[in-house]
C-alpha cells in the first residue's frame, strides 16, 4: 500500500538517487529502470527500514551486478520512455567517463560511493555488503585501472575541457 512517508522520500530524494544510479550504470534510461526497480523492492519493506538510502544503493548495485551476469537482461520499466533510448553520444568522447564504464560493477560502485558521494570506507563497505578491505582494494585497483585506460594527456581534457 502506498505510504505517505515513502512518497515524501521518493519526491525528496529521487533526483539524488537517480544521479547515483546513472553514475553506476552509465545510461540515463537504465538509471531510471534501476532506481525504479530498487524503490519498488523497497516499498513493501519501507516501514521496517532503518537506512533506506543505504538499502537502495545496495539493491541498485546488486541488481546491476546480476544484470551483467545474466545472458538475457530483463528491462523493467513502468512507463514507456517519452524520448528515444539513445544516450547522448557526447558521453563517449569523455575518456575517463568511458574508462569508468569499463570497470566491473562493484569496482565502479566503490569509486562512485567513495569519491563522488564522499562516503567513508566503512560506510561504503556497509552499503555494498563487503569488507572494508575489499573497498580499499577495489578503490586502489579501480584508480590504477583508470590510469591504465586513460593516457595522461587525456585526463586534462577530461577535466573540463570537452
Amino acid at each position: 500500500m502506498p505510504d505517505d512517508d515513502f512518497q515524501a522520500f521518493v519526491e525528496q530524494r529521487y533526483s539524488a538517487l537517480l544521479r547515483t544510479a546513472y553514475l553506476l550504470c552509465g545510461s540515463r534510461d537504465r538509471a531510471e529502470d534501476l532506481l525504479q526497480s530498487a524503490l519498488a523492492a523497497a516499498l513493501p519493506k519501507w516501514r521496517r527500514m532503518d537506512h533506506p538510502e543505504a538499502y537502495l544503493r545496495r539493491v541498485m548495485v546488486n541488481q546491476l551486478a546480476n544484470v551483467w551476469r545474466r545472458p538475457i537482461r530483463e528491462i523493467v520499466t513502468a512507463v514507456l520512455p517519452d524520448r528515444p533510448r539513445h544516450d547522448p553520444a557526447i558521453e563517449d568522447r569523455d575518456e575517463l567517463w568511458t574508462a569508468l564504464r569499463r570497470l566491473p560493477v562493484r569496482m565502479r560502485a566503490v569509486l562512485v560511493l567513495r569519491y563522488w558521494e564522499d562516503r567513508s570506507e566503512q560506510e561504503t563497505a556497509q552499503i555494498l555488503g563487503v569488507s572494508v578491505g575489499t573497498v580499499k582494494s577495489h578503490a586502489s585497483r579501480g584508480l590504477d585501472r583508470l590510469r591504465e585506460l586513460v593516457p595522461a594527456p587525456s585526463m586534462a581534457a577530461a577535466n573540463g575541457e570537452n
Binding site: Y14, R19, Y22, R28, V79, D82, D94, L100, Y115, W116
Partner: peptide, 24 residues
C-alpha cells in the same frame, strides 16, 4: 579528475515526471 567527471555527468541528469506514481 574522477570527481570532476562524475560531477559533470551527474549534473546533467534530471528525472522523468511522476517518479512516485511510476514506483507504485
Amino acid at each position: 579528475e574522477l570527481r570532476a567527471v562524475l560531477d559533470r555527468h551527474a549534473d546533467d541528469i534530471t528525472p522523468r515526471p511522476y517518479p512516485y506514481t511510476r514506483v507504485v
